[in-house]
Design a protein around this nucleic acid. Structure first.
Length: 424
DNA sequence: TCTGGGGTCCTAGGACCC
DNA sequence: TCTGGGGTCCTAGGACCC
């Protein structure tokens, strides 16, 4: 028996999260905006029908928003993260063999079911709706790529049932033929352009190309897509989340900033967040890359987007050390006279803390012990009393109004006692 | 006026070594 | 003036994902 993958994907995830706690949002157009209320990153079906594009700048649609009474929200990641864990743990209760693929998607292995995969998926869908209030679509296939295609098809064309099983070849070619090559998992805009120039327009046509033809144009990853479309699995279930190999923390500013002091303060904040993530996954790092960008949409202003890397002699997870290196790197790349719109930091050469080898440059054991104690105390206090209860002094150097804008934030219904929904 | 953030993998090419 | 060949490691950049 071939093993079947199911892909469960939450419908319009961020919008659905907002709807769970505010039923008046049902059946009306809703959008969720990115940080700084910049771009549209989630749309209800009603908003899609109004022609609002994914990733569109919010200001371009202000008129449509007003004219059609579109409900607009700033993104509320603590709410979405919490809703995501509820969906995932519910799925896990029913199907233990699963991979959490993203905040709103999970792959499941459907093995030895007491019923047909399709009716199992329908039940599953009903349960998630009932338990969490989250509408999902489910696609089934012998490979992850086919499950993805089935899911997309179900969401688009089978809204009522929300489930499609491509397990048997019957429907498969019809469905592949109706899937634009650009909508295949792993084929993006550039490859789609290339493929279309050879008259390969849909997934079925792509699946009939030769291995060599694909390999020479799209590397080995293209070959994996090809085989997966033919029903031969190349991607398997990744059950345990692996620690990140890079950790990025970056933000656009609410306004442009010019001074070194402001950039230093912002970067110290970003390093603080990144380092906390680093410790959370039990890692240390020895590379810190800092980058700053001017506003690329203001071509009338001088552009400058430098980056700089600091190499740390011994891997560490100590926030003050990482801040020191980041600020050194910043001084190396900063040029006055530019308006900066975005800055960020990337931690690289990450390795498990346990594997850390002693090196010649390592600080004495006593110092390392103190560093560890300090970080652990800071993490505990911030976990207990809120994220910025205790923070490095550098993050307070130039406080100001450069932070992000979130003007339409919904309450943190599920993660803050002060903002619980009230039943009246 | 206003345009997000955080990841992965692959490959080519340079530096360096013998 | 001639100017090998092969290996490894690292990084930047390109492509993709959500």
């Amino acid at each position: 028996m071939t093993r079947m993958f199911a892909l469960v994907d939450c419908n319009n995830f961020y919008v659905s999260c907002e709807r769970v706690f505010d039923p008046s949002l049902q059946d009306v157009p809703v959008v969720v905006l990115s940080n700084n209320d910049g771009c549209v990153i989630a749309r209800s079906n009603e908003a899609k029908a109004l022609g609002i594009r994914m990733g569109a700048p919010a200001f371009e649609h202000r008129e449509i928003f007003e004219k059609h009474g579109v409900q607009v929200f700033s993104s509320n990641y603590s709410l979405y993260g919490d809703m995501s864990s509820r969906v995932m743990s519910s799925l896990n209760r029913i199907v233990p063999d699963m991979e959490v693929y993203s905040i709103d998607e999970a792959f499941l292995i459907l093995d030895s079911l007491p019923q047909s995969p399709e009716s199992f998926a329908r039940d599953l869908r009903e349960k998630i709706l009932k338990w969490v209030g989250m509408p999902v679509s489910i696609g089934i296939g012998p490979t992850k790529t086919l499950a993805k295609i089935a899911n997309r098809f179900a969401k688009k064309h089978l809204e009522h049932s929300g489930v499609l099983d491509l397990g048997s070849p019957g429907m498969r070619s019809t469905c592949l033929e109706l899937t634009d090559v650009e909508d295949v998992w792993g084929i993006g805009r550039r490859y789609a352009l290339l493929l279309k120039s050879y008259n390969v327009r849909n997934a079925l046509q792509f699946s009939r190309q030769s291995r060599d033809w694909v390999q020479s144009r799209m590397t080995v990853e293209g070959v994996h897509i090809l085989l997966e479309l033919q029903g031969i699995p190349c991607h398997f279930l990744d059950r345990t989340p692996r620690p990140n190999k890079t950790i990025i923390s970056s933000r656009s500013f609410g306004r442009c900033v010019e001074t070194l002091q402001e950039l230093q303060t912002a970067l110290a904040c970003y390093v603080t967040r990144a380092a906390q993530k680093l410790r959370h996954q039990g890692s240390v790092c020895s590379g810190v890359t800092v980058f700053v960008y001017t506003n690329r949409f203001r071509q009338d202003l001088p552009q400058h987007s430098p980056s700089g890397t600091a190499n740390i002699m011994y891997p560490t997870d100590h926030t003050p050390t990482l801040i020191r290196h980041a600020l050194n790197a910043l001084e190396g790349i900063y040029r006055p006279g530019y308006s900066y719109k975005k800055a960020g930091v990337m931690l690289t050469r990450i390795e498990p803390r346990a594997r850390k080898r002693p090196t010649f440059f390592q600080p004495g054991a006593g110092r390392e012990k103190k560093e560890k104690k300090l970080m652990s105390a800071m993490d505990h206090i911030n976990a207990r009393w809120g994220r910025n209860t205790l923070q490095p002094a550098e993050t307070l150097y130039a406080p100001g109004d450069w932070g992000i804008k979130r003007e339409k934030l919904s309450p943190r219904y599920t993660t803050s006692w002060d903002e619980l929904p009230v039943a009246s």
